Computed example of a mutant assay.
Amino acid sequence: MSLLPSTPPGKAPPASGLHGPELDAASFRRIAAIAHREAGLYIAPAKAAMVRTRLARRLRALALPGFAAYCDMVEGAGGLAERGAMISALTTNVSHFFREAHHFDILRERLLPHLADKVRAGGRVRIWSAGCSNGQEPYSIAASLKDAGLSATQDVRILGTDIDPGVIAHARRGRYPAHMMTGLSDDMRARHFSPAPGGWQVSPDLAALVSFRTLNLLDDWPMRGAFDAIFCRNVVIYFDAETQARLWPRFAHHLAPEGWLFLGHSERVSPAAQAHFTSRGLTSYQRAGAIPAPARPEGRLA
């Protein structure tokens, strides 16, 4: 998942020069505060014009006269659904199959031999794709597992989560137009997909390995078992330092001993959390030692 890029904070100027209502500084601050409270997003004042462009569609759909009225609605008692629509509008879901290929090299070469032995010994395998966007990442993981001889007939499962219910619905369908199939070789596409109207359909045996659900990383996580690997790439860089500091121990706590955490190319575990992880290469970490249970989130972060 890719979110609005961040730049240093400052005073938001009115976003003007476009058709429709102007986004005044006070409304921008309200929208930025809601996005941070609901999803941990940091939206820089320099992105006011982008916010205006993306939310103008919501104003038109709701027949609202301006951004102040929109903020009143979103913050009102009946604004829950629109808060979700607002977060969806402010996030850009960009991904492709086998993105950041070095992580999949580690998966194939260092994890899968161990995981295959684990399954043969009667164990379970669990992998989490956090911020899975339209599903290319979890299906890439599933293809790697399938090519290593693991399947849904064994106790092997991949969980894909995202805050946006729209992209989760797309991921569940498992159908991709040609322009979303980048990253796949012709051979891999032939093995794991079939032609379908408007594009390509993920194969049933691959789909059987993956389940999807909507999840806000700032909320309580219902998953109780440990994961052998967590992919959370190009997500945490868009959170502020306080939000990141709360996430690192939670990820560590949900990893099996020596489980792996994969981050995006611009992301690093913060120094304060490095006691929980051992670096194993570029944006690749293993859980280190015993991890105390992190504090439960007190609702969404303010």
Score class of each variant (00 low, 15 high):
Arg224Gln: 15
Ser185Glu: 11
Gly225Ala: 15
Leu247Gln: 12
Ala256Leu: 04
Asp186Ala: 14
Ile31Asp: 09
Ile168Ala: 06
Pro13Asn: 03
Tyr139Leu: 04
Ile158Val: 07
Arg60Glu: 13
Gly174Glu: 02
Ala288His: 14
Trp221Phe: 14
Gly289Gln: 09
Leu80Thr: 14
His102Met: 14
Leu261Trp: 08
Ser140Trp: 00
Ser88Cys: 11
Asp147His: 08
Ala190Glu: 13
Ser151Pro: 00
Ala148Gln: 05
Ser266Ala: 08
Gln244His: 13
Gln136Cys: 12
Thr153Asp: 15
Arg126Trp: 13
Ser27Pro: 09
Thr153Trp: 01
His96Gln: 10
Arg173Phe: 09
Ala61Asp: 14
Ala290Thr: 11
Leu215Met: 07
Pro204Gln: 13
Tyr238Thr: 04
Ala35Pro: 02
Arg173Glu: 15
Glu22Met: 09
Pro8Glu: 13
Ala44Asp: 04
Ile168Leu: 02
Gln201Thr: 07
Arg213Glu: 15
Ala49Cys: 07
Arg189Ser: 02
Ala275Gly: 15
Asp205Gly: 03
Ala101Arg: 15
Thr91Ile: 06
Val210Asp: 08
Cys232Lys: 10
His276Ile: 10
Trp260Leu: 10
Val167Tyr: 07
Pro138Phe: 00
Gly10Thr: 01
Thr243Leu: 02
Arg173Asn: 15
Tyr139Ser: 02
Ala77Cys: 02
Gly281Met: 08
Leu55Trp: 05
Gly84Asn: 01
